[in-house]
Design a binder for these strands. Structure first.
Length: 423
DNA sequence: TCTGGGGTCCTAGGACCC
DNA sequence: TCTGGGGTCCTAGGACCC
């Protein structure tokens, strides 16, 4: 039997915050989104207090703090670094690993045939990560990714369990699936759940028993794969090599809404600059830049969502071209008279940066400029990476709307100035 | 007063071709 | 009044994920 494991960090962001604050062990912890908008992570204790995922902070703040809850603004420098450490440890334990998200990875266990050995391996993995990094993980093992996900779900629910669960015998799988509502299956969200419920499919077992042809014709090949995976048929492989990105988005909600074009413009410029950095870091060029602006969907005022794309005649990765495109796109989608709450820049239609498709009408002397431009971008990127901030004029440094992050913990592991010190 | 950000995949439908 | 069949490529939008 070909087994694979899903390693999932327990309440990851909350665990990261707790790692450097052992005094917070057993205390409720929540982590907030940008601008301290809503709750994006909760410790076990916070969940027990009834704090729901995604709930706006201002709604629960008073009662939560009054009950001794701890709160943090999101500290992605810290989470990203600890995630790398966890993944690095896991990489040392198997040949084939797919880092699926900041707090999850799939491990290929094909070298382990016996399910008891797989379970023991899971326990070993869990102990090593705990000892070397200090982040608690949960491990689900099964014959497919979908079943491994479900197994990790079981591991979480099991009170007083070992944090590792292996799901491989067909009777055991049936038993688990009969008690698992479909909306808890990986890949089945709110909409699909509703549509499946309309067909009297409620438990994962009901879904597993469905005719795959019917599922494919009524839904999609994606759901068909899920059904097959529930039956133990591997449709999704553990993919070691990361596919190059297909789009890059930089977007933010604002602390204060604005209807002023002149206030949006430097914001969009900032996003465009950041997007350009990411693009070059990926070693890619883009042929399209898009701008999106939107009012708050929670607002009672008039709603508007603007989106406009600009096409480049040649793929670019030069920030100045991206800035020019983004500014044009903003002008095209901006409408007077709305209170904008969110904006962003999206880069797409990528090609590798070493490929250069010339336009028929290009100036032949341009290749020299091209080289100069690349050198300039590289120079600016490295200066910014060193902390010597270089700005483009349209960014209007200092004018950008600041973000609320009042409760952020130190960058314990990524900044010399914020290293934890012995008290 | 205050409600995140960044991705992927699939499908339908339009444009275009012969 | 009546107007083919088969294919590709691209994009927008909808679904999902963490």
């Amino acid at each position: 039997m070909n087994l694979l494991a899903l390693v999932d960090c327990d309440n990851f962001y909350a665990s990261c915050e707790r790692l450097f604050r052992p005094d917070l062990r057993k205390k409720p912890i929540v982590v907030l989104s940008n601008n301290d908008g809503c709750v994006i992570a909760r410790s076990k204790e916070a969940k027990a207090m009834g704090i729901k995922m995604g709930v706006p902070w201002f709604q629960i703040k008073k009662a939560y703090l009054a009950n001794g809850g701890q709160v943090f603004s999101s500290n992605f420098a810290l989470y990203g670094d600890l995630s790398n450490r966890v993944m690095h440890v896991l990489e040392g334990m198997v040949n084939n690993i797919e880092v699926y998200s900041i707090d999850e990875a799939f491990l290929d266990l094909h070298h382990i045939q016996n399910s008891n050995h797989a379970y023991e391996f899971g326990i070993h993995c869990r102990n090593i990560v705990d000892q070397w990094v200090g982040i608690p993980v949960r491990i689900g093992i099964g014959p497919t990714k979908t079943l491994a996900k479900i197994a990790s779900h079981v591991a979480k629910k099991k009170i007083g369990g070992t944090g590792v669960f292996c799901l491989h015998e067909s009777l055991q799988i049936e038993h688990v699936l009969k008690h698992l509502p479909i909306n808890e299956i990986w890949g089945i969200g709110r909409n699909l759940s509703r549509r499946l419920n309309d067909l009297s499919i409620y438990s994962s077992y009901d879904l597993m028993k469905m005719d795959t042809r019917l599922i494919r014709s009524k839904f999609s090949v994606v759901l068909e794969r899920t059904v097959r995976e529930l039956r133990g048929e591997q449709c999704l492989a553990v993919q070691n090599d990361r596919e190059p990105k297909k789009q890059i988005i930089v977007s933010r909600s604002f602390r204060e809404r604005t209807g002023d074009f002149n206030q949006l413009k430097p914001l969009i410029s900032n996003f465009a600059v950041r997007a350009g950095e990411k693009l070059r870091h990926e070693g890619q060029k883009c042929s399209q830049v898009s701008v999106l602006i939107a009012t708050s969907p929670f607002s009672k005022q008039a709603q508007y969502r603007g989106f406009h794309s600009i096409q480049f005649s040649n793929p670019v990765n030069d920030t100045r071209s991206i800035l020019a495109g983004a500014n044009q796109a903003l002008q095209d989608c901006f409408r007077q008279g709305y209170a904008y709450a969110k904006a962003g820049v999206l880069l797409s239609q990528f090609s590798h940066s070493s490929v250069m498709q010339r336009s028929l009408f290009d100036d032949l002397h341009k290749s020299f400029d091209q080289k100069q431009n690349e050198d300039l971008m590289r120079c600016i990127d490295s200066m910014n990476a060193e902390g010597l901030q270089v700005y483009y004029a349209s960014q209007c440094p200092g004018q950008a709307l600041p973000m609320n992050k009042k409760m952020m913990s130190p960058k314990y592991t990524t900044s010399w100035l914020e290293l934890p010190t012995a008290k």
